[in-house]
Amino acid sequence: MADKPRIKLPKEAAKGDVIQIKTLVSHVMESGQRKDAQGKAIPRKIINKFACEFNGKPLFACALEPAISANPYIQFNAKVDEAGTFKFSWTDDDGTVITAEEKIALKA
């Protein structure tokens, strides 16, 4: 069960503004290096890719590695030239993708 990701960005911005986007997603980020009580390796399960699109155009993306803590927090900036929708996606090792959307309006 994936929880809803937490995202924070302004509801509206003036044209040309640089806004800050904060994201936090719930995930175990199991590194694959640990062993369970029986000594068997716990299989790796991490979010290996995060991507953000704005109106269908790639805006920001990054690869995540096993050393990143559980519940990865990612913060980045974006310049806003038009109103539109941010689409966020977190891709898990097993192929599942957690997605979220946020809209932004231009200040009149």
Binding site: R6, K22, S26
Partner: peptide, 12 residues
């Protein structure tokens, strides 16, 4: 409150 990972639990 956004960065605080404890809020993931509160929301759950």
């Amino acid at each position: 409150d956004l960065e605080n990972p404890g809020f993931l639990a509160v929301e759950r």
